[in-house]
Design a protein around this nucleic acid. Structure first.
Lengths: 153, 153
DNA sequence: GGCAATTAAGTTGTGCGCAATTTGATAGTA
DNA sequence: TACTATCAAATTGCGCACAACTTAATTGCC
């Protein structure tokens, strides 16, 4: 111990806002870690899983539309989708009606992989130790944050 | 539109767990974006800010201890701290009592920078649109998730 | 003392994420 | 038609994050 150390419990209370900032940072990492673990055996990263899920739900989508849904730009999605194409999970094709656009769709293998992952979110939720009500509240809170942070400049 | 497309609104309700997974992914990104914006003028990234805050609160700490507090390993912290050292925000020194350890501490400039950032968390919380009670609840939920995900293998 | 096992930090390789730029296609207009 | 502006995706560069490995110091045991 250094001689000038404070007793033990930090006296500074730190504002709630500061604690939230800190908790958000660390908790999300723990959350991601569980997904990483559960998805590893399926050969998927967490972002790849979200992409698979989003394409599966919304059907064939352009890269731009997928970016809106996932809140990611082409700089992130292009290489990610290229890897998923390499893994035979999705197909990419230029839109004949507008050659600027690239339409992404699930392959049969991608659909199969997605179906086999159906219980992963449930297992994560279980491990989180949250009650049903807490999950509902958390979901509403997260949506509220996104909306609020989105709208004003 | 492909011929076999479902009408429009996806009939699959998607489980709450799935929605939470998705919301966590997108919301955290929005949250980070606001921090990025507010911290940019101070020349700090969000992880650098968290590190600065953590070192500031806990006093000089070893890299390992900082990793426990921030939930990051040396593979992330070593280059991050090296950049912060280059920016004259922190100092790094081998512990004379155990030369394996590296002790990280705030420089005068680092302390000053940290102090000048005091209202950033408050501004982020404001923008989030959450009530005081929601902030309290969110904080408790996040802590509960971390604890629960940490403990069992 | 000598030496294997452990520990702390750093390094390497890969993927995610964003800002800024580039490439190529479409739209608009003289 | 030709020229410009706009738009979609891809590319480049940098930082964060983690797994796996390396390096160097300490501990433990003989």
């Amino acid at each position: 111990m250094s001689p000038s150390n404070p007793p033990a419990a930090a006296p500074s209370p730190l504002s709630l806002e500061r604690q939230i900032c800190y908790a958000m940072h660390t908790t999300v990492r723990a959350f991601d870690g569980v997904y990483r673990e559960l998805l590893a055996e399926h050969g998927l990263s967490y972002p790849q899983y979200i992409a698979l899920m989003t394409i599966g739900e919304h059907g064939p989508v352009t890269v731009g539309r997928l970016g809106e849904l996932m809140r990611l730009d082409s700089g992130t999605l292009s290489p990610l989708l290229k890897r998923m194409e390499g893994a035979r999970l999705v197909g990419r094709a230029r839109d004949p009606e507008d050659e600027r656009r690239v339409v992404v769709s699930l392959t049969a293998g991608g659909r199969e992989r997605l179906d086999s992952l159906g219980d992963v979110p449930h297992r994560v939720a279980e491990r989180s130790g949250l009650s049903r009500q807490q999950l509902v509240d958390l979901h509403r809170t997260l949506r509220q944050i996104t909306e609020s942070l989105d709208s004003p400049a």
